[in-house]
Amino acid sequence: MTLKKSFLIPLGIFLLLVLFLGLGFQLKDPHYLPSVMINKPFPEFELKDLHQPEKIRKKEDLIGEVALVNVWATWCPNCVIEHPELLRISKDESITLFGINYNDETVKAINWLARREDPYRFSIVDDEGKLAIDLGVYGAPETFVIDSLGVIRFRYVGPVTNEVWQQEILPIVEHLRSSQ
């Protein structure tokens, strides 16, 4: 009898392993890369303004209120998808959007915005992707929520749809505003 029971132990361990690995692979999106920048201050930078190249933008230009920082590019198809929603947010919701034009060509980027309308207070030219690396960005679009002190509070990877805005971003924005 004791012999039989001890035979069940490896089987039990095996089943437990199957359960954990199975759950691990099913529930977790393997592409998901959690941001390590959450609750860290926005990185310092000195980069040109997209529309006024003589103007150098700094971190201080982003700070003051709860705001969205959106990483975008003309080569990024999902940026086209999220653009109408960003426009709507910039008009209907009282929140400032800043753009980081990531690894792009400035002329193309200016035309892209002119064609589609510009939701950003201003866009920063990050043509070498250095600010993006400091932000832990690994693709576009990515959208960061920063608080009034310039601390990163949330990051969303992928296109911001109305659903994403309502369910994921707006609650955080409201929470940050109420706790100020």
């Binding site: 890369l33 959690p34 941001s35 390590v36 920048m37 690396i133 400091d134 932000l135 832990g136 690994y138």
Partner: peptide, 8 residues
């Protein structure tokens, strides 16, 4: 790299 992209 780890500071920016974590364990990944």
């Amino acid at each position: 790299m780890h500071e920016r992209y974590g364990d990944f």
